[in-house]
Design a protein around this nucleic acid. Structure first.
Lengths: 257, 257
DNA sequence: TTAGAATTTAAACGAACGTTTGAACTAGAT
DNA sequence: ATCTAGTTCAAACGTTCGTTTAAATTCTAA
């Protein structure tokens, strides 16, 4: 009665909540009851509005990736129109590709850091329907940027460029997805290291901006590193590898007296 | 019956199968019945030998990470003893850290590419028990290498080094974990790009070696990239200093056409 | 106002999940 | 041969999963 809700409200509320919970727990570990409970909607609402849990995840990504893909292609269009056929600088290409993404992390209306971290974590998810979904969503954009890099670096073997594009995607995804992980590992938060304090509400925005400032030089340095010389990496060590300790334990069952 | 099996055989068979299935499907999507079915052991065997599904995952990692951590610390010990107090070269530190890991990918007895990909994918898993497990397993080693890098790059702010260590871990993890993902995205397999054909059984070994040859220069280039902000101040470059100017357009500092 | 479509609701569905149980079986020492 | 501790086994435990149903409710348009 008095508790009114606009029709489209349920859909978007589910998407917002699912985006956050998928990021926090992963796809498999996030149940329909957890999502609908946090969104304060009926359990059947997801199936009614989206059809299935898989379709929900796809829609969570689609509403952001459609915009992101457009922005990335437009940014490249602008650069290439401005260059009038001349090769672009690698830094311009990286700025268009990674800068566009990282700017999403500063805008809460575009998903903010929540979506960025969800994206980074889900890119390596082994589930088949996720893999095929991303392949379809990304194929066009990646191909455009790959060709732009080929054109920008005509003296670098194409295979090498593809490898390094791969490495750059990884550095970015992991840097976004695993920030808190590494904070635990390194024993000190990244914010502490930055030497500044910020208000909590600006935390995500500032985080995204700092990340971009740190990440772009790293990616550029990696992309333009000297090419590997064949055989410049020693494969075998001089010392023979030690056997894996079998620690011949006396058997110790866990649930038995 | 005639179907005999040594006592310790069940344990290791479960570990081998779980290692592969956790890599292929992820932790949550891999059920106990799938593991025990593939390992051809009784459903209750996992709980009997390991206690729980979580404890199984921990043991899958522990039997590899114990060896890896030892190797990484020993490699650093050797380098520091050899240097006798002098700062190490960044390339030496990266070789000790990442080379030691990538060498596991060439040795099937140490888990091979299966374990490497499982490790890369699991490092970003949001599950609490996984996060705390890795924090405990990695803390010591990361801290040693972090300090080595501080010593090797005294002119680089420590915060910057931690960020770049983070990025390097990401590039490596993602490169290992998501190889097949990017193959789909880029529309061509990395093996095709490498321009060589190998027998299927050597595939994993060759893959690991190629990955190392491509990854190490990228990581070094990223680690020694010019600093952001007031990026003109130089990072210590003791070997093959690379140009930092991006104005080169077509002419890149790569040392090979 | 009212018919009809769209949405929400409570309840239940069958399947799969991790785990536990107690008996049966195995191997080695006495 | 007997005992004992270690291991395997089939069966079942209670819970949670994603999905479906059909009635109740709300919204929209004539």
């Amino acid at each position: 009665m008095s508790e009114q809700r606009a029709n489209h409200d349920t859909r978007e509320r589910i998407l917002d909540v699912a985006e956050r919970l998928f990021m926090e727990n992963g796809y498999e570990a996030t149940s329909m009851r957890l999502i609908t409970g946090a969104a304060e909607v009926n359990l059947a609402a997801v199936n009614y509005h989206f059809g299935s849990k898989e379709a929900l995840l796809r829609e969570v990504f689609r509403r952001r990736l459609t915009w992101l893909n457009d922005q990335r292609l437009q940014a490249l269009d602008r650069l290439e129109a401005q260059a009038a056929g001349a090769p672009l600088k690698p830094s311009q290409i990286l700025e268009a590709f990674f800068g566009t993404l990282l700017r999403m992390g500063e805008d809460e209306a575009l998903g903010g850091m929540t979506f960025l971290r969800l994206l980074g974590r889900t890119l390596t998810d082994p589930a088949e329907f996720i893999r095929t979904f991303f392949a379809g969503e990304y194929a066009q954009v990646i191909d455009r940027y790959k060709r732009a890099l080929f054109h920008a670096l005509p003296d670098v073997p194409k295979a090498e460029i593809v490898w390094r594009l791969h490495f750059m995607l990884g550095a970015m995804s992991y840097a976004i997805a695993g920030t808190d992980v590494l904070e635990v590992v390194t024993g000190c938060g990244l914010d502490d290291l930055a030497g500044e304090t910020v208000s909590p509400e600006d935390g995500a925005t500032v985080h995204a901006r700092r990340l971009a400032q740190r990440l772009m030089p790293f990616l550029l340095g990696g992309l333009r590193a000297p090419l590997p010389q064949f055989g410049d990496l020693p494969i075998r060590q001089e010392e023979s590898p030690q056997e894996v300790a079998d620690e011949g334990r006396g058997s110790m069952p866990h649930n038995r007296p």
